[in-house]
Amino acid sequence: MSFLYRVANRLKNDREDSADLVGETLMLAARGWRRFDGEHLKGWLVKIMTNRHLDDVRRESSRIQPSPLIDETVPDGVDTWKEVSWRLDADRLMECLQTIPEQYRLAVHLCDIESLSYEEAADALEVPIGTIRSRLSRGRNLLRARLNRAT
């Protein structure tokens, strides 16, 4: 359960929305249990959760004006891992993670926090393994840049 809450928290910014999403994910999982192939339970649940979340986003986007795109360019060669390593405060890290775009945030969360393999994460997000690898790389770089900027 805590695993599902953590992923829901990456997708939603509201505690009650997260709880709803976890509940709905469990309901859909129970209904669709026969379709589960017995492998990668976490990945399967994430797939259900992200698809359910996308439904919410689509519904919302039909009512809300899209916000302007933010330039997500990672400054090249400016930051180093060595430099960021003394700024690794857990609270700030999670705050910054929440600010990077969802596709990168999820890749970092699933691979780095939940320790899903590339294959599991790719299956969960329904993208090729190469895409997961590049999203993870970009997500880490964005997170590093945000951390450096935040301090």
Binding site: L88, A90, L97, L143
Partner: peptide
Amino acid sequence: AFVEAVREAG
């Protein structure tokens, strides 16, 4: 250290 810190924080 960064990757490990992300995991621990999460």
